[in-house]
Amino acid sequence: MPMLEVENLHVEIEGRKILEGLSLAVNAGEIHAIMGPNGSGKSTLAYVLAGKQEYEVTQGRVLFEGEDMLAMEPDERAAKGLFLAFQYPLEIPGVTGMNFLRTAINAQRKKRGEPELAIPDFMKRLREVAKRLGIEPEMLRRAVNVGFSGGEKKRNEILQMALLEPKLCVLDETDSGLDIDALKIVADGVNRLRSPDRASIVITHYQRLLNYIVPDVVHVLSKGRIVKTGGKDLALELEARGYTEYQTEAA
């Protein structure tokens, strides 16, 4: 059974059709890249998987480890192991990264019926993860994403992801606007989480990130549907030839 099964997904926002019959199966241990032109529905897919309210699913279903994920609240999905690295991470004034993460990790543990992580254990884990990713723990004393540069925000997302140890990571254009060093940190974060019981979906516009995160499967998304699926070479092909042929094909 695939970890994630998306079947014939149709999604609208404010009456506008965004996804029109998207299907996708991701097995544990795999990294899938989803590429496509602007407006093809890449971010919508990420938001729908995470449960953002504004999106209306009109058809199809999404199973996460065999369970109907669309019936779950966003926080239930998180507790089940879904993580979304946001394209535009949000600011939470007055709440330190440390407090935010501890609240998040314990909220998830509570929902899973696990005991809370005591402060010293949490701090230890946090330090280990931050060190591994080469992230200054100083960043965690600041309010979440407040006054962060674009690169810092993305690194912060990866740090959260590494700490929460999700089963399925969805990265929504995490590479956009990053310099090469930040890009490597992001890639490193994803690669380190690579394991036989985890999976990732890397959404990106450019092939560049895929030099560092080598995907098992590459999908091309256009006009709300997956129009081509292939191996990692497909990304290179896209880089060379652009999305034009897929856009006309789908139209």
Partner: peptide
């Protein structure tokens, strides 16, 4: 709503 969704995606209930 975006702020709330961000927190909920990390595992917090709406009230948390």
């Amino acid at each position: 709503d975006a702020q709330l969704f961000y927190c909920r995606q990390r595992g917090l209930s709406a009230e948390e």
